[in-house]
Design a protein around this nucleic acid. Structure first.
Length: 1143
RNA sequence: AGUCGCGUAGCUCAGUUGGUUAGAGCACCACACUGAUAAUGUGGGGGUCGGCAGUUCAAGUCUGCCCGCGACUACCA
């Protein structure tokens, strides 16, 4: 039975893909591919869960293509690659989506809508675009198990999270703490960094700023050398510190200096009160606060109120010499509590700069993240108040105003608050925007405070300052940095281990691992887990009211047991969590909030109302996707599911998913979570702008795939730039890939199919031994095997771009434009000989290997080609290319010498063609000879590819010229790489001397092998290896050269050559006419020609050739032709009649 | 603002340990070829290798500073 290779009318990638998709579906090919590798060594892959409440974009095609490539590749290499899909279902975007749909805000939750209903709504919408995602997955050919995905909102998933949190808790790494967070008083809610980075959130605002004078305590002068030595009047000594938020000054408890920054002690006068002062500030900033021209002016000439204020630098010192000096509280309204630490002294701060301000930073630990950090390190107390409920509070309440005295604890007020001073400001909003009774035109608290300081002689400079400041996207009002209670994971405790383990991870690109991720780890802060939200994983911690007793629940079973205890204690009446059927209950809010547990000492414990960061959800997926440790033992986990060999996501996940995976794995299992990670860059639009729905430049992945096909889209994205570079997405580029790669491959396949079908080639014959195959076959097979090695290596090193480019240049340059072009004749000419079989076998092998090599990147086209080939030959017992083994290179077939001489042949041909072009000699005009000057070795190499060159460039003979021949003129150039290190500075003169060599000098060094130069009085002996000699011209020939290769062409056209040219022209015209007349390739014809002398001579001499080429049975020349088919122009300046008929 | 990455032809990208005419594809122009024809070849135009300094005999390549773009981290006096 001789089945035919499938032939196509034209290339249609989308049709092919549709057909293949159906085939996969019918044959369950993905499952099959897993099944066949079952029991093999696993290659563990984690799917980063996308959120299905948004539509997929083109960048998802990018990320998923990368994932797919390596999973498919490893599958071909024999690994068992299980790929569980997943859905990220919690978190802020979901909630915001719901709020938008329902037209509510967070404040309405619990009022207009119950938490229960709200969460139900979230659950409903969270997978709203799942179908679209599934469609994308299928259409782009991403193989992942969609039937059994992990979903983060399930009770099982949450239970694993609780277990992990329990482990972390047991290790003492989970704690409750205070942190400064962006907070919107107007909205009454904390804001995530995500919310803060929304467009338009940062706006320039004009604030009143003040450089305040912090008075140094008088008794300090005895303790500090600087003060003792340089400050004349300690009662007038101040630190200068700048703030853009004067309302934080009453909360000041320290000043920070840069330990290595230079400071100066300056004697001068206060600009507002003209009182004499001695102040400290950074040396670099001296002249931003004092006019240079007033330096060292006579103090006695200064009169009160003068604008020009003289000053004098008394001394200089380093910041560290100032550390420890105490100062008087600037606004002594409220004292910090001693129990919380020291106050009002100078401390060191690593973040202090001298870019603006005074180089001395006012520290209010309750309102600045950096402030809080350095204060804590230096044991500085934050300024805390105690409210009626005995809770510590910052000076500002959650609505954005200073606490009223009556809201505070009475004992506390008596002890710490100066009521006289404070009452004037108590209740004031720190920004007018928070007070509904005020507008921007009203005096702000900041201004009032500045005026007060001015009157007290404690303000050095008051001015307006414009800076960018974040605003709440919901209320449009400025954000406050505010301390909030949060639960933290003490990641800083395992920092060293995180860094150590990170060094074992193979990052692509490496810089992301060492740089972005490495830096992130170096500057690690504790992980703030808390989110005051509704739809997410609840924090499984229950606490007594006083916070002294608490429990961290690690499983549903434990929860149920604790509830039982609680029922006994009378805090609860029923246990909804006792069922072993996880569908019977819900671990989400609000249900979980109604669980009240009992403490050791018998007190009720309520759940901490926080949810946990959704990033914990995704970082826990290696375990939660298997419901570890409840449905999966640690042994199973470590054997089959953890850690991952490979993950891939966008580079924006570095501090997201990559970090949480790494941290949880390190904390709980002391292991990396992934061994190899590819982080891809962004997909930008063709102009390099970020894609966004708002700008309307977002590319619809479905549109692209419908138009160009998934394979072309995938190939384009992978081959165009390295995955980690940003991709400027241009649809024209996809089209180029379609034409260039798939078009060429399609043409090559079609060519093969056309002739293989005619000849009935089904690869039935035994492989022709390699030694019996012609040079060109051995060459392409050598290149093919080299390609296998290189592509294998590229995939193995996670370099998909390299793999894609290697394949595509092989297909284009080697296979199509050289092998097939040069071998065309072998396929359509002559008998079904061993040479022809060799050609078929060789081309078949190439196509088969290309199908396999490219299958990870272009799964559809490669599949189609493989099936088309294999269904005729049945060489492989596989129904899909994705079920085959990755090709192994046969190193015996690799012949580097052959590869390089073929390259030389291509170069020679290209030179000859360029000579023909330059001299207007058509390739159809045969020429007598070319001449190549070269050594014996090169000559014997060229001899082996002689015939290829001759037929390609239509020349009769190659002549060689020994290099010593005196008809050659030569060029000589210094070999910089050899001479440079030897002679260094003399290089220039030597190079010049060499370039000035006469032909005789060149001959001399060639013959004697050395040459002595005299440069700058020194004798320099040159060896032959110190120079590069190339041939330039050959007397009497037309010559072209490239590198060290020179080719000369004999352009003489003899009478014989002319006749042959005519014969070839004639063949060409007849072929064209055959084609135009739609004759079949195998039809025999009769040709009648109008007589002409040269044509006649040509036809006589080349009759056999002409007839053979064109399947002409009779070639008749006669004076005139009846009914000519057309006219031809084979003879210069003549149009001759021709008539062609089938016979 | 800090950290990281990127910057080479109109566009998309290569460019080895520094070594002397900086390459390819696309696009454009011209010419050719044609039993693969929506393919192909040859030639041409097109470059201050982001800028400036430095190291070196020699810098697209190494160093520093600056500019532009992007990401991340912050928004801090």
């Amino acid at each position: 039975m001789s089945q035919k290779y499938r032939e196509y009318k034209q290339l249609n990638l989308t049709d092919i893909e549709k057909e293949i998709r159906e085939k996969w579906q019918k044959g369950n090919t993905f499952r099959q591919s897993l099944k066949e590798r079952e029991g093999n060594k696993p290659y563990i892959f984690f799917e980063g869960p996308p959120s299905a409440n948004g539509k997929p974009g083109i960048h998802h095609v990018m990320a998923r293509t990368i994932k797919d490539i390596f999973c498919r590749y490893k599958s071909l290499k024999g690994y068992y690659v299980s790929r569980k899909a997943g859905w990220d279902t919690h978190g802020l975007p979901v909630e915001l989506g719901v709020e938008k749909n329902l037209g509510i805000t967070k404040e309405d939750i619990g009022k207009k809508i119950s938490v229960d209903e709200y969460n139900a709504e979230c659950r409903k919408t969270v997978l709203q675009f799942k179908d679209l995602w599934d469609k994308l997955t299928e259409q782009m050919g991403y193989w992942v198990d969609l039937d059994d995905p992990y979903i983060t909102f399930t009770n099982e998933y949450i239970e694993t999270l609780w277990w992990l949190l329990g482990e972390i808790y047991k290790k003492g790494l989970l704690y409750k703490g205070y942190t400064i967070q962006p907070y919107s008083p107007a909205a009454g809610t904390g804001l995530s960094s995500h919310e803060l980075n929304m467009p338009g959130c940062y706006r320039d605002v004009k604030d009143t700023t003040v450089v305040a004078q912090f008075k140094i305590k008088e008794q300090q002068s005895k303790k500090n050398a600087i003060l003792t030595q340089y400050v004349k009047d300690i009662t007038k000594a101040y630190f200068l510190a700048w703030t853009t938020t004067p309302w934080t000054l009453p909360s000041n408890t320290a000043l920070a200096v840069g330990p290595n920054i230079d400071y100066v002690v300056v004697e001068s006068f206060n600009p507002y009160t003209s009182e004499p002062i001695t102040v400290f500030l950074a040396k670099n900033l001296l002249y931003s606060h004092f006019k240079k021209e007033n330096e060292n002016k006579d103090f006695s000439e200064y009169n009160k109120g003068d604008k020009e204020i003289p000053f004098k630098v008394l001394a200089e010192c380093k910041g560290k010499e100032l550390i420890g000096i105490e100062y008087e509280q600037l606004m002594p309204w409220i004292q910090p509590m001693e129990s919380e630490g020291e106050a009002f002294k100078v401390i060191g701060g690593d973040y202090v700069t001298t870019e603006d301000g005074t180089g001395i930073v006012h520290i209010a630990p309750t309102f600045g993240a950096d402030d809080a950090r350095v204060a804590k390190l230096a044991n500085i107390a934050p300024l805390h108040l105690l409210d009626k409920n005995e809770k510590t509070q910052p000076m500002v309440d959650k609505t954005g105003k200073f606490f009223l005295i009556e809201e505070l604890d009475e004992d506390y007020v008596n002890k710490y608050v100066n009521k006289e001073l404070y009452k004037e400001y108590a209740g004031r909003f720190v920004k007018n925007a928070y007070d509904s009774n005020l507008t921007d035109k009203d005096t702000s608290l900041d201004v009032d405070l500045c005026v007060m300081l001015k009157q007290q002689g404690l303000a050095f400079k008051i001015e307006k300052h414009t800076h960018s400041y974040p605003h709440c996207w919901r209320t449009d009002k400025p954000v406050l940095y505010y301390p909030l209670d949060s639960w933290f994971i003490r990641t800083t405790a395992i920092k060293d281990r995180l860094i150590e383990l990170n060094k074992t991870i193979n990052w692509k690109p490496q810089a992301t691992g060492t740089g972005r991720f490495g830096n992130w780890l170096e500057n690690l802060v504790d992980w703030n887990l808390s989110r005051s939200r509704y739809w997410g994983t609840p924090l499984p911690i229950w606490r007594t009211e006083d916070g002294k007793e608490e429990i961290c629940i690690s499983s549903v079973k434990q929860l149920s047991e604790e509830i039982e205890k609680s029922i006994k204690a009378g805090f609860m009446t029923e246990n909804k969590y006792s069922s072993s059927n996880y569908d019977d209950f819900d671990l989400h809010r609000p249900y979980i909030d109604s669980v009240i547990l009992v403490s050791q000492s018998g007190k009720p414990m309520k759940r901490e109302t926080d949810l946990i960061d959704v990033w914990f959800d995704s970082g826990a997926m290696p375990y939660a996707q298997r419901h570890f440790p409840f449905d999966c033992t640690e042994e199973e986990l470590k054997q089959h599911f953890f850690p991952a060999d490979f993950i891939a996501e966008g580079v924006d996940q570095t501090r997201g998913w990559f970090f949480t995976l790494h941290t949880i794995a390190t904390m709980v299992f002391d292991s990396v979570a992934f061994k190899n990670v590819v982080s891809n860059g962004l997909v930008l639009d063709k102009n390099g702008n970020k894609m966004s729905k708002r700008l309307g430049n977002a590319v619809d992945p479905f549109e692209m795939m419908n138009k160009y096909g998934a394979d072309a889209t995938r190939w384009y994205m992978i081959s165009n730039s390295q995955p980690w570079d940003n991709l400027k997405f241009d649809p024209d580029g996809i089209d180029e890939v379609r034409r260039k790669l798939f078009g060429t491959l399609y043409n090559t396949y079609s060519f093969f199919a056309l002739y293989a079908n005619i000849d009935g080639f089904c690869y039935k014959e035994k492989d022709i031994p390699i030694a019996e195959r012609p040079e060109i076959d051995r060459w392409i097979l050598s290149e093919l095997n080299t390609l296998i090695i290189n592509v294998d290596k590229a995939f193995n090193e996670y370099e998909p771009t390299r793999a894609a480019r290697l394949i595509s240049s092989f297909v284009d340059e080697y296979l199509s434009n050289w092998y097939v072009r040069l071998c065309r004749r072998r396929f359509w000419k002559g008998e079904y000989s061993s040479d022809k079989i060799s050609a078929y076998q060789t081309l078949y092998r190439c196509l088969e290997v290309i199908a396999k090599l490219s299958s990870p990147i272009a799964p559809f086209f490669s599949e189609n080609m493989f099936i088309n080939l294999n269904s005729v030959t049945n060489r492989e017992n596989h129904s899909s290319v994705h079920l085959t083994d990755f090709p192994t290179a046969d190193e015996n077939l690799i012949d580097k010498a052959l590869e390089s001489r073929m390259q030389m042949a291509q170069k020679i041909c290209s030179l000859v063609l360029s000579l023909r072009k330059r001299h207007n000699l058509k390739v159809r005009q045969p020429l007598a000879s070319i001449m190549i000057p070269c050594d014996d070795k090169t000559q014997s190499e060229i001899e082996k590819v002689r015939n290829l060159i001759l037929s390609e460039v239509n020349v009769k003979e190659i002549k060689y010229l020994s290099l010593q021949n005196n008809v050659l003129s030569k060029n000589i150039k210094a070999n910089f790489k050899v001479l440079g290190p030897k002679y260094g500075p003399m290089m220039k003169s030597i190079a010049k001397a060499i370039s000035e060599f006469a032909q005789s000098d060149i001959a001399k060094i060639e013959i004697e092998g050395k040459y002595t130069l005299n440069i700058e009085g020194k004798e320099i002996e040159l060896a032959l290896t110190d120079v590069e000699i190339t041939t330039k011209d050959i007397e009497g020939w037309v010559v072209a050269n490239e590198g060290n290769l020179t080719v000369a062409l004999d352009v003489t056209i003899t009478e014989d050559l002319k006749k042959e040219a005519v014969a070839r022209e004639l063949v060409n015209r007849i072929q064209n006419i055959r084609k135009d007349s739609n004759f079949d390739v195998t039809d025999n014809i009769i040709v009648e020609l109008q007589e002409e002398d040269l044509l006649k001579a040509s036809c006589e001499q080349y009759k056999d050739y002409i007839c053979n080429e064109t399947l002409t049975r009779e070639l008749i020349l006669k004076p005139s032709i009846d009914n000519p088919t057309t006219q031809i122009d084979v003879i210069e300046d003549r149009q001759l009649d021709i008539r062609i008929t089938k016979c």
